[in-house]
Write a protein that binds this DNA or RNA. Structure first.
Lengths: 332, 332
DNA sequence: AACTATCACGCATACGTATGCGAAACGGAG
DNA sequence: CTCCGTTTCGCATACGTATGCGTGATAGTT
């Protein structure tokens, strides 16, 4: 410890000077000043890695994402990073690789970095991995996704209720050929939104007209949209529930630009998420807003609470979505 | 070391078993097997933090971003994370706070985590900070931004050339009232694109009709756009060079939705970046593509090369942009 | 079988920090 | 001045890993 030497004190004094709270750290203001002075002239900063070695706390949180092209996730990531910084934590960000083998490797990687916890967004973990993390007392919080395992915490919007709202609104709008553009079938968001939508249709004795799958990505969404509308004009859907805004916005482009149809005159579009683009004049997309800020805050709260107290009970937080009525659907 | 005990070997043997390359690590395949077996039953993974303490290499890279609402940066971040993972590095992501004091604190934070290098995207660092990092042999690579300091590496697209191309194309299109929607005046991207644009206008003896500032964000862009068009219809701009696609797309929404003008019939819009939305049917935005993949690859190459060899010369890489002609401008 | 070159392995130490414990210094009251 | 309570400080140790060095084991050659 160079600094200790220059300041003429012991290494302990330096350590205590840079301890978390100046409260009762056991250094006189005199030595503290000496240390700070010496640190300044030497450009010294404590080594957070060495610290974690002792404290067994890295103050690093792993964030697992699949992709960032959907702005919903990009914004969530931004908020996660900012919020973590505010509470003195740091974000080690991983993008999920495609192959399963690489997933294992990625998780192994982040474990080696002694992260205090893991937040997964639009990702699911194999039960092996979950088991391992739980064994090692590494808390996991799933963001915008749920999994069967009741030992996992999660934060979601009430997707089932959102799906019901969409169905109710489209039925009230007097649509006759209500269809659905689904996302990726393995995702719980997709499952729940679809479930709520179909349940409400069934409750009102309405049959789903058609259903295609867009996999939550551009290419598939384009193909699915074209497929959905590839029929005589009198038999085309007059309403489409699209399982997220990112696909909805893409589909609107195809429907108007490629197929020359008007929205909502020829067909109504209902989305989910309320990404910023949904409010743009081009889209004016009627949708269900996910309260991103609250979701992020809740996820961090759950995670840190498990970090503090490793015996904290897992919690499944489900927040209410907010219906945003705009111009993309025929109104009741 | 639990594993060593269970395997009946020394801690050194364990360490050597998990060494980087199995080549000449000095463990017989027999003990290696014993160690791996023991590690498996105990769920052991080497501690990367402890390792960095010894090796003086954390294999962590800090990524500094200002925001992610511009998809250009969101995608860049995704690529950075993936590419770093591929070469065995990890991304510690920081979002720049607004106030300068917090910037210092943020940088101090990441230094404490012993990052091997820093990549800044749409961020500039005070010369104090740069000086400190250079003193500490922490390489810095600026992404999509340059700074005067010749000791800093950077990766950019040729923004001046891009600006010139835009000017040339708009002039050839026969526009009479060519204007500009600028971003944030402090940004080098903004400066260079603007410089190229104005230089070409001047070279062809054309005067800029008007200029407003959108600060690269939604709110200001909206206000600036309205201001730009707040005049009798015969005096409105008939072409606007918008300094990035994110603002261009926003402006197009306002121009069509709020002002009821047609693009390109009433006004031509020229962007910069070629974000995915630019290719959507709604926009069909004529723009200059930044080669994101190459830029990311170059940034990582520069950074790692400085990490390996701390005496590597800084390098300013400037890649060529690609003109993407679509439908948002009147054609020559 | 004997000698040597090679390899495998363990010992010890170092990295930079946190922290319990005893010693020392300090401060105040009598 | 003495005594005691409080504060400040340093010593020693621990965290989990990497690595130079010495020793013992192994294999290969004659």
């Amino acid at each position: 410890m160079d600094v200790a030497e220059l300041a003429g004190v012991s290494q302990s004094a330096v350590s205590r000077t840079f301890a978390k709270e100046p409260t009762q750290s056991g250094v006189s203001s005199k030595t503290r000043a000496k240390v700070l002075q010496a640190a300044k002239t030497l450009g010294y900063r404590p080594n957070a890695l060495a610290r974690s070695l002792i404290t067994n706390r890295s103050r690093i949180v792993a964030l697992l994402f699949s992709y960032l092209d959907n702005p919903f996730y990009a914004l969530a990531l931004e908020k996660f990073c900012r919020s973590l910084q505010e509470v003195g934590y740091h974000a080690l960000v991983f993008m999920m690789p495609d192959t399963l083998a690489n997933v294992e490797e990625t998780v192994s990687d982040l474990i080696q970095y002694q992260v205090d916890g893991i937040i997964t967004a639009s990702v699911e973990l194999s039960s092996d991995i979950c088991q391992y993390c739980l064994d090692q007392d590494i808390p996991i919080v799933m963001f915008n996704r749920t999994q069967d395992d009741p030992r996992l915490s999660s934060v979601t919007t009430d997707n089932v209720a959102g799906g019901r709202t969409a169905a109710r609104y489209l039925i009230e709008g007097g649509h006759q050929r209500t269809s659905m553009l689904a996302g990726w079938e393995g995702a719980s968001t997709n499952r729940d939104r679809e479930f709520g939508f179909l349940a409400e249709l069934a409750a009102q004795n309405v049959k789903l007209y058609d259903r295609v799958v867009g996999h939550f990505d551009l290419k598939h969404t384009e193909k699915a949209t074209l497929e959905l509308f590839d029929r005589p004009s009198s038999q085309r859907p007059d309403a489409v529930f699209v399982l997220n805004d990112y696909m909805a916005v893409t589909a609107m482009g195809i429907i108007r630009g490629r197929l020359g149809l008007r929205i909502p005159d020829d067909v109504s579009i209902f989305g989910f998420d309320d990404i910023p683009a949904a409010a743009l004049p081009e889209y004016q997309l009627t949708t269900i807003r996910q309260p991103v800020d609250q979701m992020v805050a809740a996820a961090i709260r759950l995670l840190l609470q498990s970090v503090e107290n490793s015996k904290a009970e897992p919690e499944q937080v489900r927040l209410a979505g907010r219906f945003c009525e705009r111009q993309s659907c025929k109104r009741p």
